[in-house]
């Protein structure tokens, strides 16, 4: 199965998954995102870096319309997923979120069994016709999240009983169980220790074969390790976007250079 995906991988590498044009976000009077234009590629890991409060998480949450639940948030501009405007009236945000999965900063497994955590999405969206299919989805998702071997004997135990790193991989398994097209990760390793971080990073690299992955991170090393593309945000604007190697070795903008060399942040 993965071999097939790898073939597709080579083909899909340059396809644009998300295309954002002139995106503005206001929280009440605060202009949080200013004129962001960006094209996010399929089958690629894109890292968003920048100092705290620079708007990278806000922009991430625009991609699956999680900002809708914040009453004071106002979004302008255009974000297209596979050419479709996701802020169009015809788009149901609930369906959109099934296509664009999200993993949060702090692991947030539901207070349910491991199995129920993973099968939550497939059940809601009716992805399995019977128990056997559901079992299969759960197993595949847990395998893809590199968690299957650790939990296969205790699927009925609560997900909250796992360690922090395992919980985060459970959340990733839960997100990929709905067969999304892309995965948004909001600082997925900031609550994890270095070993768990290493496991999750390995997993992200693996997930690239199937999804377009966007990761917000505060760790420059992490961005350099896992991503192919990097976007640097500063004070709500997208300062620089390009190949990760280029951004880290020869940044074009002086602000990017000062940030990655530790002078601002």
């Amino acid at each position: 199965m993965y071999d097939m995906n790898r073939v597709e991988n080579a083909v899909g590498q340059d396809e644009i998954k998300i295309s954002a044009r002139n995106v503005q976000v206001w929280y009440g009077e605060t202009h949080a995102i200013k004129d962001v234009d960006v094209d996010i590629l399929d089958k690629t890991v894109t890292a968003f870096i920048g100092p705290s409060g620079c708007g990278k998480s806000t922009f991430l949450r625009c991609i699956n319309r999680m900002n809708d639940s914040i009453p004071s948030a106002r979004i302008e501009g255009e974000i297209r997923l596979d050419g479709e405007d996701i802020y169009d009236r015809s788009i149901d945000p609930v369906q959109l979120r099934a296509r664009v999965g999200m993993v949060f900063q702090k692991p947030n497994p539901f207070p349910k069994s491991i199995y129920d955590n993973v099968s939550y999405g497939p059940r809601i969206h009716g992805l399995a016709r019977n128990r056997a299919e559901l079992d299969e989805i759960v197993e595949r998702s847990l395998r893809d999240a590199a968690l299957w071997n650790e939990v296969k004997d205790r699927l009925q135990e609560p997900g909250t009983g796992l360690s922090g790193g395992q919980q985060q991989r459970l959340c990733i398994a839960r997100a990929i169980a709905t067969s999304p097209e892309m995965l948004l990760m909001d600082e997925p390793c900031s609550a994890l220790d270095p070993i768990a971080t290493g496991q999750v990073e390995e997993l992200i690299d693996h997930l690239r074969q199937d999804f377009s992955v966007v990761i917000v991170t505060h760790s420059m090393q992490q961005a350099a390790r896992v991503s192919q593309k990097t976007a640097f945000f500063h004070l709500g604007s997208l300062v620089e976007y390009g190949e990760t190697d280029e951004i880290f070795t020869k940044p074009q903008d002086p602000r990017t250079e000062s940030y990655i060399s530790g002078r601002i942040g």
Partner: peptide, 15 residues
């Protein structure tokens, strides 16, 4: 109930 659980469920496409 922590907001993170709410967000987690919404992000999976639950109503």
């Amino acid at each position: 109930v922590p907001r993170s659980l709410r967000d987690g469920s919404m992000a999976l496409g639950a109503t």
